[in-house]
Design a protein around this nucleic acid. Sequence first.
RNA 1: GCGGGCGUGGCGGAAUUGGUAGACGCGCGGCGUUCAGGUCGCCGUGGGCGUAAGCCUGUGGGGGUUCGAGUCCCUCCGCCCGCACCA
Length: 835
Amino acid sequence: MAKPPEGTPDRYDARAIERRWQELWDREGTWQVPGPGDPGFDPDVPESYVLEMLPYPSGEPHIGHLKNYSMGDALAHYRRRRGMRVLHPMGFDAFGLPAENHAIKTGEHPAVSTNKSIEEFRRQFLSWGISIDWRRQFGTHEPRYYRWTQWIFVKLFERGLAYRKRAPVKWCPKDQTVLANEQVIDGACERCGTPVVVKMLEQWFFKITDYADRLLEDFKLLESWPQRVITMQRNWIGRSEGAEVVFQCPEPPVEFPVFTTRPDTLFGATFFVLAPEHPDLERLVEGTPMEERVREYVQQALKESVEERADTQREKTGVFTGRDVINPVNDERIPVYVSDYVLMDYGTGAIMGVPAHDERDFEFAKKFRLPVRPVVEPADRDASADQAFVGHSEHERLINSAQFTGMTVAEATEAIIRWLEGEGKGHRAVSYRLRDWLVSRQRYWGAPIPIVYCEKCGMVAVPEHELPVLLPEVEDYAPKGKPPLAAAQDFVHTSCPSCGGPAHRETDTMDTFVDSSWYFLRYCDPGNDQAPWDTQIVDYWMPVDQYIGGVEHAILHLMYARFVTKALADMDLVGFLEPFANLFTQGMITYGGSKMSKSKGNTISPSTIVERYGADTARCYVLFLGPPEHDADWSDDGVGGVHRFLGRVWRLKSAGGDPLVSPGLDDLSGAALELTRKVHWAIQKVTADIERFQFNTSIAALMELVNEIYRVESDLRDDEAGEHALSFANATVASLLFPFAPHLAAEVYERMTGARVSEADWPDADPALLKSDTVTVVVQVNGKVRDSVEVDADVDEEELKRAARERPNVQRHLDGQEVAREIVVPGKLVNFVVR
RNA sequence: GCGGGCGUGGCGGAAUUGGUAGACGCGCGGCGUUCAGGUCGCCGUGGGCGUAAGCCUGUGGGGGUUCGAGUCCCUCCGCCCGCACCA
């Protein structure tokens, strides 16, 4: 095609187009969506809730946000044009440490810096043109929101699901606060990387362990979640079945229950180990000659960091306590040790040592020269004396185990549990790795925990009508061993809501993950000031039909939100058990092969790209980069390619005929027919690819279609049918491009048709135009492609074989050889097998 | 150590059910438009041999199933992710 004629608006001015449509959408409230009870609500329209994880507003949005919201927005647009009422809201996860640390450094109130960030995020999201119902926006730091976060806390407290206890907890010395187990990564603070230490502290917990089984079972209610996210949660919950077995200490008389997944190996127990933190340890050794050494060892063990202690490579250590316990199955006395390889966190903090069948116990036995007694016979190899045998298939049978000898492992497990239960020495048990969720934080920038301590009444929840408990102003945000709120005297001193007597407030704030564990409910009914939501409205929209976000939330946020939803369902506050029916986890965008970070100076700012190329280019590019679930590396050159493509769309020129109606098969021939077929192919391809989140190939298909339009355009300008085909093709490009490049597509669509693309139905492919009258059939000889032949689509097999044989190159390869077999795949290929 | 995923041109990546490997884009090369171009348009582009027609070869390595394998099976190698003294 030659250069566009002088004087036409040939330059693709993304900035002007985007400004125009953003203003129009805002003015007309295009993306506002009514819910039940709102004017214009029609109950017969199917609903869809499309949600991207809410952003944490810090600085300005990064490329990951752009990708996240570009995907969600594409889907929201697509579903709207499929006739659905789509809830597509936005909010901000505004409480949290970075804003507070910033405040400590600069003195700027966290609310000030957070609100600035929110404004910047909002400004950029608007500049991206994402189709959000902005009337529903909120920040989790606003009293109108955290009032209800506190309300939920109180509800959980009333049900015994929020409780306070003294427990060994993970403490970050840098951030000066406790952390949830889920926030400790490799023994270090998730936020700042400082190695955490264990402290005995009284803290607030949510009883998520009550829901362990339901969190596992209800995976079956999820429609489509990535398998690996489910696996990660399953591993985190860590359910194990086995038995609790009681070992009796004769002197002093103490009972030690242990949890084991292998009750079948009870006869192989040759020693017993307590965790250094075990509460009965002190009593066991008090006044004995071993007291000094045990105490020393415990001191040593407690000093270790979480990370050091988790190191599986190092040699086992421990100390004999001088005491014995009795193995309930054979009344044998076995020695009790203390060792740091036994964790107080899991099971009962005590274990039976079965060195023959447990690798860790084996190592310990070797170190302390303890006997190794095999009780399970390996099925197909000799029990090696220098390692533990851990096999427990149906082929392994018990030895050295009294009346259980000869049973398979499974039989013996059952029989021994039943025997223990009969003797009152143990019972069937299930153990979990999951711990209760520690939700209190000794920090400022969070929702205050709505609890008051009264001298007479004890712990009292702040009543509903007194909520929110407002976050007080303080002068110093820095924690100094005490939470910052403790310094706010007016805040701390209060009266008991129950008896009116003197009382003081809880000064810890809530983990920000509490804020984000219910925000998706608030979007449904954001203006409600009587209740956190109207159950009927929430039940209308929920569960979220498509949730999109980073895989880094696989455990934390996604598990907490599931737990809170279930707890609310149990209180009849919501009518569903799972918050997110479908989950999509997007991959990261890297730059130069590594994660973008300000400290490395390898960041790409979305605003730079938007300013240079426009939002449509930026959005299309992040989707075109590759499969959205994979990590992808940003390429500066690649953006230009997508921008060029959008420029080509911009320069499509209108033609005659009705652009909204496809020319029919009967009116078409030649290039016009081929182009119209390509259009219908693209409709089908783009539709199918959006449905399976393959935005990259959707865009590639549109590129193909546009290339085709440019190739044939000059041939089609001669007659009416050609003009019509062209006209329809151009309008359809704009229509299909809309979910990815909404401004440009709206502009081009309007130019081609005079209509609003956002109001147009999503196009349907005409099956008659998806088929071709002729097909290219590949001809192989012995599985090697030798030629291809163009035949009628409905040609019969014999005719096809004849045509295939006639190809000169096929003849050359068949020449003088005997055809042993002929394989025909209709419409695809013919393969001649010769000897 | 356990669990999961992935290996395709110079690069990012395509390839519903086994049926023309490399769509689309970047990069590179050629031609045209242009005063110029970091513009736009058209064409070419896995490797090797060949003037060409064409032939050989090719999806991490090796083996297998099949008329036919990127795709299915076995095995080895490499990379990534998750969990990790959980009894």
